[in-house]
């Protein structure tokens, strides 16, 4: 199959999918128009909307599958999707978060209430609803990365597949030998402070540091590789305490064999594999959970090992790529 991912990279996941799809014998190309401090490598073709648009006609002829991400398309009115479909090519939309996190439903749903979630980064509610209506009018199938997003998309598309976040298990792995630190190191690496609950995390860790000595490292606006290298040195990684579902940082933390703290909404946690080793905490419980972890090195070590096993079982990019192929085959 010839597959085009477009138009942007999301936390290194698109590059990883392309690499794994290529390893499976498919031709996978990715466009990226998002250029920022994360400084992605050159697995994808870094470009801009104008250059991408100029390739559209050839791309339509060349590729079999158009895999769009995060609700973005090449045209603002999104009609390039219709042109691709009209040419007889297969199209799938991969929703990633703020493109479908409907603000009102993020706070309250049939089986949950989440007073912590921040939706200021989401698109306006009406726009999300309008986009979902448009996409689902033209596309039968969407992909989401977890159960939180599944609930937003499920009412619209005929088929919604959950494709776990892929991670390169061979490359992102625990250190061979780890000499214990004098003091535990807690790392928090937000891309959006409000979404991740960073202000609360800083406040709570400062309070805790008055009782227990530990290092707290805040990583912001640094390249992804720098973040990963710092996470390798960490003992505890705090992903987010608001949203209710774990993200890339949690997956990377687990793959590195670290103890991961992240808020898991109870109804979502109930649908996740039972063995999930993430310590769930929100702003009301973070103080106690973090204190417990800081005081118990054995617990941290145990959770770290379980985390690695969990990442291998559920997020290995090789496995995820095969799942993706089976989704493509249904289009």
């Amino acid at each position: 199959m010839k597959i085009l991912h477009l138009p942007l990279e999301v936390g290194g996941q698109i590059a990883e999918l392309c690499l794994q799809l290529r390893a499976l014998g498919h031709q996978a190309v990715g466009y990226n128009w998002r250029h920022n401090y994360l400084k992605y490598d050159n697995t994808l073709l870094h470009s801009d909307a104008y250059e991408m648009l100029n390739t559209l006609e050839t791309a339509i002829t060349y590729f079999d599958i158009f895999h769009y991400h995060t609700g973005y398309t090449l045209f603002k009115d999104k009609t390039d999707i219709e042109r691709v479909i009209h040419a007889g090519k297969k199209v799938v939309m991969h929703h990633r978060g703020n493109d479908v996190r409907i603000p009102s439903r993020a706070v309250k749903g049939q089986h949950y209430f989440n007073p912590y979630v921040y939706t200021g980064d989401s698109l306006p509610e009406q726009q999300i609803l309008s986009n979902l209506s448009y996409f689902s009018k033209h596309l039968n199938t969407a992909i989401v990365q977890d159960y939180e997003l599944y609930d937003y998309a499920a009412d619209y598309y005929r088929n919604v597949h959950i494709l776990p976040r892929p991670i390169n298990i061979e490359r992102i792995r625990p250190q061979e030998t780890t000499a214990p630190h004098d003091l535990p190191i807690v790392v928090h690496a937000p891309t959006s402070r409000a979404f991740k609950g960073t202000e609360d995390i800083i406040r709570i860790t400062e309070k805790l540091r008055r009782e227990i000595p530990f290092h707290f490292i805040l990583l912001e606006k640094v390249p992804r590789e720098t973040t990963l290298s710092c996470m390798r040195e960490a003992d505890i990684i705090v992903d987010q305490i608001n949203c209710g579902m774990y993200g890339n940082v949690s997956v990377e933390g687990m793959a590195l064999g670290k103890t991961v703290v992240c808020y898991l909404r109870p109804d979502i946690k109930a649908r996740l594999p039972k063995e999930i080793p993430i310590v769930s905490a929100n702003r009301d419980t973070l103080y106690d959970e973090l204190k417990r972890l800081l005081l118990d090195e054995d617990l941290r070590r145990r959770l770290g090992k379980q985390g690695r096993l969990y990442a291998e079982a559920w997020h290995d990019a090789k496995v995820v790529a095969k799942q993706l192929i089976s989704i493509y085959e249904t289009l």
Binding site: Q27, V29, Y31, L45, S47, E51, N54, T55, T58, Y62
Partner: peptide, 8 residues
């Protein structure tokens, strides 16, 4: 040439 050079 172009982005196509990244196709093949």
């Amino acid at each position: 040439c172009g982005l196509y050079a990244g196709y093949d």
